[in-house]
Design a protein around this nucleic acid. Structure first.
Lengths: 339, 339
DNA sequence: ACCATATATGGAAGCGTTTCCAGATGCCAA
DNA sequence: TTGGCATCTGGAAACGCTTCCATATATGGT
């Protein structure tokens, strides 16, 4: 492996100047810079990250902590982050949090503190107090995506807004008997994504004079099988003549559509379904959804952390989302019940 | 951030001894080791990866190059790798190759050569000659998962074997009119996954006296929508009375099942479908598949690269796979055509 | 009792950069 | 011409570890 010294020698300058020439920091004449660049190119020189980090205190790497990579939302965000970091010349150090609590603890206790990264992006994790504390103790920029933790800068969509928008869409189409599939609020340590989304749904219904407490609803794990199981129950419940269904994730919505199909219920003729996310499979299923552009979120989060690492601080950010209407929703048929 | 020197001072030893005590390399008495460990614990000391790498030449980090994180197979493998590396105390540096050829090139030209990683796992990438060369030039262990590149140690399932097994399953059930959905063999630079899988299918059919050339087949991109589109054509083709279908990935198989449902074709009563992968959604759809345990593959690849990094070399490895029979396949009904 | 060997420890030399500091050079204004 | 300032460059000191080497002490065989 060629070292900076060899490049400097080849270019006839000191290693100090070579370093300045290649990093762009400090004054170097144009001629010198060119000679050094050419020498570096010719020798195939690449800076040693270890030496560079040690000397400069910056590693040009960002840590990303994510849960379950199988879930489309998370791997989409990760894709966006990765793309932006690569373009900026940064490495991405991935910490995939699994269900093993000991490993999870170790990530916060040791891995993050090795100074291998200049900043951390936390993707949609429910952080407990100790973890938040550890993150603070790192003394480096941290951005939390998909949550509004107490004391860390974060970026999130308006989690009430998305489900409110979804429900309003159905209400506007004339639906009154609307069901809901959400997440388990018991695990809501801090950010309350499941709680917020339910709230948004409730508000929308209440605003139109429907009692949200009466809405048939169920709890699932945001996955297709989860949504499928709950939807089978909801659709099968006698007396609950749902004409509309809001799911807190597209995967659950897709599960619900599959359940409807298996039960011989037609979408959207008999029941309209709306999801939240903007899942890539939404198109295939014709799913109407509130798209929250997860890849874009990853990009924004990455840009944000890079800015923070480079000194330009800023705080909370709201992320955009939009309703994408496809064929899983339609105007409600007039029935006896509807006013 | 507390340094090793402070720990050493607190424990009343030299930094050399402290280093040995914490790393476990070299001779340290039990008492000393304990005192140092306690001091480190008390001070919350964590080694600086940069300093450690620079001094030792090892970074305790493994690079992973993967394509499209949206595809279940890849994020499953990544999950397995991540889990194993974390348990071993290694970091994972993720290089997600996108469709941008310039970024891809940059990963091989610069990113990997910063000596940030001790070894590289390449997941199912078609490497061109230059890329292979770069990988060699790294002078560090490389493992290629899901492919048998010319000159790099790799691990792969028997790609002919999986589709042969899938096809044999259908043949054994009495099917004779079997279709196939595979990948585009034009992109087959090196590893020939699409080609190998097609070969396996062909061999199985030929062995039972069916002409594989006659088998109705189509090409897709291994995704659900891709499989859906091709299957719609295959099922809709007049004259081709398929009773069985082999797909080279579970996602395409699931797409095919959805297409069948939309066309009013019953699975498995009218057509049996087999996939390859072991996709988590297989259970929901009752998909019969050849499970290749992707998470396990990730684990094996990670263990392999760790062994190599630590010096214990070894070569190619075959990976296990197995037929998982669910409800998407059934005995073929006797028809006029069947012998 | 003594030498050979194994075990423990500290001093100090790196590892390959970055960056501070000081000196050199060039240019412009007075 | 000369002082003053900005620009350029090199020497050398970090950065925080690991590890070689030398020294010191314990262990065991004869």
């Amino acid at each position: 492996m060629v070292s900076l010294d060899e490049v400097a020698r080849a270019a006839g300058v000191s290693s100090a100047t070579a370093s300045r020439a290649l990093s762009g920091r400090g004054h170097v004449s144009a001629v010198t810079r060119n000679r050094v660049s050419e020498a570096a190119e010719a020798l195939g020189y690449v800076v040693s990250s270890a030496a560079s980090s040690l000397a400069s205190g910056r590693s040009r790497s960002i840590g990303v902590i994510t849960p379950d990579l199988h879930r489309w939302f998370f791997n989409s965000v990760l894709t966006g982050i990765s793309d932006t970091l690569t373009r900026a010349g940064y490495d991405l150090t991935l910490y995939n949090v699994t269900s093993d609590p000991q490993l999870r603890r170790e990530i916060f206790r040791a891995f993050l503190r090795r100074r291998r990264v200049d900043g951390v992006v936390v993707v949609a994790l429910e952080l407990d107090e100790w973890e938040t504390e550890q993150l603070h103790g790192l003394g480096m920029p941290v951005v939390v995506l998909g949550g509004r933790p107490r004391e860390l800068p974060g970026m999130a969509i308006d989690d009430q807004g998305v489900t409110r928008l979804a429900a309003e869409h159905l209400l506007t189409l004339g639906h009154r008997e609307i069901g809901y599939i959400g997440g388990d609020q018991a695990f809501d340590v801090d950010y309350h994504v499941p709680t917020q989304r339910r709230e948004g749904f409730n508000h929308a219904l209440a605003a139109r004079g429907c009692d949200p407490q009466q809405a048939p609803s169920g709890v699932a794990d945001f996955t297709i099988p989860g949504g499928y199981a709950v939807a089978k129950k909801l659709f099968g419940t006698p007396g609950a003549d749902l004409t509309g269904l809001v799911a807190a994730s597209d995967e659950m919505a897709i599960g619900a559509m599959l359940a409807a199909k298996d039960l011989g219920i037609q979408v959207p003729q008999q029941v309209s379904v709306v999801g939240v996310d903007g899942h890539e499979l939404g198109e295939l299923f014709g799913l109407t959804t509130v798209d929250q552009h997860p890849v874009g979120q990853g990009r924004i989060a990455a840009e944000h952390i890079l800015a923070r690492v480079e000194g330009e601080g800023n705080g909370h950010t709201d992320l955009p989302f939009e309703l994408v209407v496809r064929s899983s929703t339609a105007v409600a048929k007039k029935t006896a019940q509807s006013e």
